[in-house]
């Protein structure tokens, strides 16, 4: 089985891109499944089910969504292997721009959209900078000049990535992406021993544990203060 991690900011078009790409993969008789990770709410699992794609959904709720992802990805992989899928795609939203769910040796795709503004590539951390493939969506509603500027900014922060333009509504470009996804050599048996490409930041303070009161005396653990004196 090939495991592929897809992530990107909320509403960038991850689900649309994955759905269109799976259409092309299915034509090659590949069995594809999706594990959808989100924070508070998602009904994308219904979209996948409607398209006849096996799907598992995980909501992190009060936990950090990326930490929740790492804690569950091994089990999800086992689910995929037990069901003999050819490809398992994990989809997760990058919420704080700092973490990324990418794993060493596992293909990583970042989806971002042209509408998010040309400084966005600068603001997104490892999720964009360490991806193998960067998919840029919503190109149909911006000008050619903006598309070119945006892609060149992405290239500056991640020169090694393959950059692709996909229209999530019409699927234009998704066939091309599908040709880069499956390879027999990328077979995974288990994630045991594998490592994240990037450590996730540590944050454990009194507010993580449910504190609601404001004030220094209630702050414990990993607390840091802004520098306000110039």
């Amino acid at each position: 089985m090939n495991l592929i991690t897809v992530s990107g900011p909320p509403s960038s078009g991850k689900t649309a891109v994955i759905l269109k790409t799976i259409e092309s993969l299915k034509k090659r008789n590949l069995k594809v499944a999706v594990a959808k990770f989100d924070c508070l709410y998602t009904d994308d699992d219904i979209l996948y089910k409607k398209a006849g794609i096996p799907v598992k959904k995980g909501l992190s709720g009060a936990l950090c969504p990326d930490h929740y992802f790492v804690s569950n990805v091994e089990e999800i992989t086992k689910w995929g292997l037990d069901n003999n899928f050819d490809i398992l795609i994990s989809e997760s939203a990058g919420l704080c721009n700092r973490c990324s769910p990418y794993i060493k040796g596992i293909k990583a795709i970042c989806v971002i959209d042209n509408l998010s503004g040309i400084n966005t590539p600068k603001k997104i951390g490892p999720m964009l900078k360490s991806a193998d493939i960067v998919v840029i969506t919503k190109g149909d509603i911006v000008s050619q000049a903006e598309r070119e500027v945006f892609a060149s900014r992405v290239n500056t922060v991640n020169p090694a990535a393959t950059i692709m333009h996909i229209n999530g509504l019409t699927g234009q470009g998704s066939f091309e992406l599908s040709t880069l996804l499956y390879s027999e050599e990328d077979h995974v048996d288990s994630l045991k021993g594998k490592e994240l490409r990037f450590p996730m930041p540590a944050a454990l303070c009194s507010y993580c544990l449910g504190e609601t009161r404001i004030g220094e005396s209630y702050q414990m653990g990993n607390v840091r203060k802004m520098k306000l004196d110039d």
């Binding site: 509408l115 503004g117 149909d140 911006v142 000008s143 000049a145 500027v149 060149s152 992405v154 290239n155």
Partner: peptide, 29 residues
């Protein structure tokens, strides 16, 4: 390659999402 694309597209319903003057916009490009 991200800089060598065979096709540039001029679509009917494109918008500008940046808030710049004409000069600044072309300059960026």
């Amino acid at each position: 390659s991200s800089s060598d694309k065979l096709v540039a597209q001029l679509s009917q319903n494109m918008n500008f999402v940046m808030d710049l003057s004409v000069y600044e916009f072309v300059e960026l490009h």
